[in-house]
Design a protein around this nucleic acid. Structure first.
Lengths: 212, 212
DNA sequence: TTGGAAATTGGACCTTAGTCCAATAAGGCC
DNA sequence: GGCCTTATTGGACTAAGGTCCAATTTCCAA
């Protein structure tokens, strides 16, 4: 597994001097740094499994910083981003942070501010990954359910009795009992209460029935 | 009830000309506007029950804009804030938005941008109030439970059987059954699944047991 | 064509949960 | 001292959930 790996600080800036200086600063502070000159280059190497954060210049040849931010967000990435820009203005800053950026710094970069931001970003990322791992484990178990079992699960966490579920699915109580037992086993739930909580994390259950 | 009231746009700026201009702009756009010259004046009149948002200047005599933001946050208010400032810089913008501000605009204010921000803020506020109302209704029902019933509830939503709960609380199964029935009645839960979901919204149950 | 997963059902039996009626005991309040 | 809430318990009974063993049917893929 790659879970307990040391976090990587990705750095994307087209000016070699800045790249070198920031990389050095971060390495001295004990971080593992991977630097790129463009977003395209970064995307080519980036593995979403890797924990860490991204220090990103806004003005870049090719894909810009804010475009990369949007691209990553659209692709489900939650890599925390710290913007570092030479020609930033307030609307740009507001947009970046509203879109989820952890920090927005201007050049010349204040070393302390950057290190504080990196610490915050990495902390944020690790907490986020922990909960993502939890949910993905539940999803994995849920995927082991047969289509019919998934269907029964929805009714079970809705609080219906086996008899009622059977009637709605056009079968008998006995059948539902069997499905139910399999569901508890495959979902590794020790009780109905636990099953309900697991299902909630998958968005199954009442609070989402309001969608109709 | 004050629930379906029309939202109020609060406006705090020490410059009478700006106050007048912005208030006029907002009223023309159909909003109900209440303007004040200082944070102290605003706090004196503000009723947290009122839905709406706050357009706030940063530099003010007495309490500053960011200080009011912190004060409101510390006091559990979720009134959305739109900052409008004449001498803002990027760090100030970043801090304000990271602290939850909806938007950070600079003077002279762009009318379209302000109206867009107000729309967004009011939408955000109304959604937020809706979920707050839901949770407070559950809290109210929970407060009707006797101490003993609240204790039993914790064990019930943990998925334990009546027999086990009785053993842990030093009583017999029959007693727990009675408590349990009262709990279902008072919490207005139609099934165990529903009770578990209600309890979760109050922070009762497994996910929070990790606190110890 | 055949082996296997998925879905279904039966029967017997045990454990839990829920319900209705009734009753006791302790502590607080007017 | 009465009155009320809270917490407790008993008995009897019904309903629902869970378990073990066993069996059938359908459909898909090797």
């Amino acid at each position: 597994m790659t879970l307990m790996e040391q976090p990587t600080v990705y750095l994307v800036d087209d000016e070699p001097a800045i790249r070198k200086a920031l990389a050095r600063l971060l390495r001295v502070a004990g971080f593992h740094v991977v630097a790129h000159a463009s977003c395209e280059e970064f995307l080519h190497e980036y593995d979403p499994q890797t924990p860490g954060c991204l220090i990103l210049d806004m003005m870049l040849p090719g894909l810009n910083g804010d475009e990369l931010q949007k691209y990553l967000a659209d692709n489900g990435s939650s890599l925390p981003i710290i913007f570092v820009t030479g020609h930033g203005d307030i609307p740009m800053c507001a947009r970046a942070i509203k879109s989820g950026a952890v920090e927005f710094l201007t050049k010349p970069v204040d070393a302390d501010a950057l290190l504080r931001a990196v610490d915050e970003a990495i902390k944020y990322d690790s907490e986020n990954r922990r909960s993502l791992v939890d949910v993905s484990a539940i999803k994995r178990r849920h995927s082991l359910l047969t289509p019919r079992e998934q269907e029964v699960l929805i009714h079970v966490v809705d609080g219906k009795t086996n008899k009622k579920i059977a009637a709605e699915l056009g079968t008998v109580e006995k059948t539902i009992k069997v499905h139910r037992a399999r569901i508890m086993e495959k979902m590794e739930a020790g009780s109905l209460a636990e099953l309900v909580r697991l299902a909630m994390q998958l968005g199954i259950g009442r609070p989402d029935s309001r969608c109709c």
